[in-house]
Amino acid sequence: MKVVLKQDVKSIGKKDELHEVSDGYARNYLLPRGLAVAADAAAVNEVRTKAAASEHHAAEELANAQALAKKLNGQIVAIKAKAGQGGRLFGSVTSKDIAAALTQKVGEPVDKRKIVLDGDIKNFGSYEVEVKVYPKVTAKLTVKVEE
């Protein structure tokens, strides 16, 4: 019997998937507990519609991420910091500081968790920073730490 799962079932599959199970298992376990519905035309059509919608949303997110990466690529972000003698900063420049400066410069929010720093920025100068906008979509920019 073909069923469409309404919830994740450990031994069968994930929610909104179409599976072939034995008749007894479907009638005695899955259907009474509300874990699945019989795969009639309406249920199969609903699964296909949800799959198409999720593909469309993923494509939109990817396009938005690529547009943001294009905006961020090659940007030069200047961050002002205080330092003591010898050019060593009081504290360090963090991904939070870089994200705030990028958000202000580009006009779109940039998550601080997506900024990859090679190490702590504790001196004045220019640093290459990578921003992982989306899986497999990255942008490289330069951070200038100034007095």
Rank of each mutant, 00 (worst) to 15 (best):
V4W: 05
V4L: 09
V9Y: 12
V9H: 11
V9L: 14
K10Q: 14
K10H: 11
K10Y: 12
I12F: 09
G13M: 05
K14W: 07
K15C: 09
E17R: 01
L18A: 10
V21P: 07
S22M: 03
G24S: 06
Y25M: 04
A26T: 10
R27M: 14
N28F: 01
N28C: 01
N28P: 00
Y29N: 03
Y29L: 07
L30I: 13
P32N: 06
P32Y: 07
R33N: 08
A36F: 07
V37I: 15
A38S: 13
D40G: 15
A41Q: 14
A43Q: 11
A43W: 03
A43N: 06
A43L: 04
V44A: 03
N45Y: 03
E46K: 11
E46N: 12
V47W: 04
R48H: 10
K50I: 10
K50N: 10
K50F: 09
K50E: 11
A52W: 00
A53G: 12
S54F: 09
E55A: 13
H57T: 09
H57Y: 09
A58V: 01
A58C: 02
A59Q: 14
E60R: 15
E60Y: 12
E60A: 15
L62N: 08
A63N: 11
A63K: 15
A65T: 08
A67R: 07
A67D: 10
L68K: 02
K70D: 10
K70E: 12
L72G: 01
L72Q: 00
L72I: 09
L72D: 00
G74P: 00
I76F: 03
I76Q: 12
V77H: 06
A78C: 04
A78N: 14
K80D: 01
K80N: 08
K82E: 00
K82Y: 01
Q85Y: 09
Q85W: 10
Q85M: 13
L89H: 10
F90Y: 15
G91T: 12
G91Q: 12
V93P: 12
S95F: 01
K96P: 02
K96E: 01
K96H: 03
I98N: 08
A99W: 01
A100P: 00
A101M: 00
A101P: 07
L102R: 01
L102E: 05
T103N: 02
Q104R: 11
E108W: 08
E108Q: 15
E108I: 13
P109D: 06
V110W: 04
V110C: 07
V110E: 06
D111Q: 02
K112W: 03
R113G: 07
I115F: 13
L117H: 05
D118S: 10
D120M: 09
I121C: 06
I121Y: 09
I121M: 10
K122L: 02
K122G: 02
G125F: 05
G125K: 00
S126F: 02
Y127L: 03
E128T: 10
E128I: 04
V129E: 07
V131H: 01
Y134R: 13
Y134N: 12
T138I: 13
A139L: 03
T142R: 05
T142D: 06
T142A: 06
V143I: 12
E146V: 14
E147H: 11
E147K: 13
